[in-house]
Amino acid sequence: MNELQFLTWVRGPGLDIALGIFLLGVLWRLMEIYSLGRKKDLAAPRHAPGASGWHTILRRSLPPPGMVKRSPVSYIGGYIFHVGLAIIVFLFVPHIKLIEGLTGLSWPGLPSQVIDAVTVVTLAAMVVVLVDRINKPVKRYLSTFQDWFTWALTFLPVLTGYLAVKHLFLPYTTMLALHILSAELLLVFIPFTKLFHVFTVFGSRWYNGAINGHKGVPV
């Protein structure tokens, strides 16, 4: 298999398999989670300011008071790489073309230089949060194989994408194929690891907010 055949495979059958596993897993897990249900709370709802699902979504998306100072790397690094990933994935023109090819939806993208800069910052932030996880004994103690694995799954597509665009280390064709392959691996593992938070993060925040809001407790 030469590099162009490798690229054509990851753009064709590889993408098909990865998206298939991704959709299968996502639908399975979302249906399972939402069908679990909870018993109806028969108590009369109590109202308190700031106690609702929507309030909690907003509140938990912002750092609690004093926490940025206590754990700056987690918060600042975490924000930077999450926002960076969103910009790279959804505003780089070739990615928009892929989404358009799959769904028919498209929107304007950002200039490549802006994406380049965001990518460098994102990669740096990811390395910093990894080093922090290794250096802090408590974080290291709490980390399981899945934490290291999902970090690598997320980091590799960004790194290979940057190397491909910059024509570093390997011929562009090979690096592009590796980039697509790494993104496909990420897709395959999203439904079955803690990376599934891309789908559940706001749902679970809303749920916690709503259930406690019913009791009049802003969380």
Binding site: T8, R11, G12, P13, L15, D16, I17, L19, G20, I21, L23, L24, P94, H95, K97, L98, E100, G101, L102, L176
Partner: peptide, 15 residues
């Protein structure tokens, strides 16, 4: 475009 799927997706609907 190079970043678009090379072939029509076959498994996705079934999956």
């Amino acid at each position: 475009a190079l970043s678009m799927p090379a072939d029509p997706l076959k498994f996705v609907a079934g999956a």
